[in-house]
């Protein structure tokens, strides 16, 4: 039991008036020569939340992050980060954010202390103590050269460098890919810590288990379009897996009526598996009444199943949170 000040315990209630969104994108489009990375992405990310962007590899997550940090100009559309337009003032954006990518490219020949000192000289005086405390907490020896560190330690150093100047927005681009569970736990705790103190975290990942623990809002990006976007708890509650047993493998079943939406459907022998959104208990009875249906079972879908369901169809229409 730690003795934190109780004042920080009271987080803003969900229906308190929120401040301006930390990140907004408006019809962001990015065409590359061989693929269309983003096709009209519009998002709003509220401050003090953990936002997770899910997507397959190559779905466009990294491209979007590069646009948000001012490293890439989009083909069309605009975005705002911390109130600054990254196209016009990328330095202004980068000053306010911390960014950790997967396999961060740090200077191999520097020691941990040297890279901390080097980076600290560009920020204010509080950088170095924060950095050193962080390094101490991760039990990394400061005189070691970065090229002699393991992958996990390197990721921790990158995270410490990104957080030491207490940015209001932390962007993580698959930072724990290929790292051991202990390091992943460390990152998770950092993210939680940031959220607990009111800062925003933008996480791009496909570690579904981590996302389920730590995210407030998620969005699923598939082939450059947002398929799903909304608060995690509500999304999970609203999507169910429905298994219907029928008497005859060839029998076809009518789709559940509106407002239910079928995300995917799969058949295996005499069972049909559907992932349905906004499925109400009345529909179970209705389904049971249908001719040929022997049994209907339903449960809440896991985030992994939701992710797979959203990313298997090409032409499913974009869905947004119904808030």
């Amino acid at each position: 039991m730690s003795s934190e000040a109780p004042a920080t315990d009271r987080l803003p209630e969900p229906n308190e008036t929120t401040m301006e969104p930390v990140i907004t994108t408006d019809a962001l489009t990015m065409h590359f020569r061989r693929c269309d990375a983003l096709m009209g992405v519009s998002l709003e990310i509220q401050p003090g939340t953990v936002f997770a962007l899910l997507g397959e590899n190559g779905a466009g997550k990294t491209t979007m992050i590069r646009i948000l940090t001012g490293f890439q100009k989009p083909t069309s559309g605009s975005c705002t980060v911390c109130g600054v337009n990254p196209l016009r003032d990328p330095q202004g954006v980068r000053r306010q954010i911390g960014y950790v990518s997967d396999a961060p490219a740090l200077y191999d020949w520097m020691t941990v202390a040297q890279i901390g000192g080097f980076t600290a000289s560009f920020y204010d005086a509080s950088f170095l103590p924060n950095y050193e405390a962080s390094i101490r907490r991760y039990e990394i020896r400061p005189e070691q050269k970065i090229r002699h560190l393991s992958k996990g330690q390197r990721a921790k150093v990158a995270l410490s460098l990104a957080l030491a100047h207490d940015p209001s927005l932390l962007i993580l681009d698959e930072p724990t890919s290929g790292l051991d569970p202990k390091v992943r736990r460390n990152f998770l705790e950092s993210m939680i810590d940031r959220a607990a103190t009111g800062r925003t975290v933008f996480l791009s990942s496909h570690q579904i288990s981590e996302v389920e623990r730590v995210a407030d809002t998620i969005a699923i990006l598939h082939h450059g379009r947002i398929r799903l976007h909304g608060p995690l708890a509500e999304l999970r509650e609203s999507i169910h897996e429905v298994v219907i047993d029928v008497d005859d493998p060839l029998r076809s079943i009518a789709a559940p009526p509106e407002p239910a939406e079928v995300l995917t459907e799969e058949t295996s022998g005499r069972s049909r598996q559907l992932f349905v959104r906004h499925f109400s208990p009345e529909m179970i009875h209705a389904l049971r009444e249908m001719p040929g249906v022997t049994e209907v079972r339903t449960r809440v879908a896991t985030l992994e199943e939701i992710f797979v369901a959203c990313t298997s169809h090409r032409t499913a229409p974009a869905m947004t949170a119904s808030i």
């Binding site: 990015m30 065409h31 590359f32 020569r33 269309d36 590069r66 001012g70 490293f71 890439q72 100009k73 989009p74 083909t75 990254p86 196209l87 990328p90």
Partner: peptide, 11 residues
Amino acid sequence: LGAAEAPSVKP
């Protein structure tokens, strides 16, 4: 060092 230009290709 700045932002990379978007390639101007008709998709």
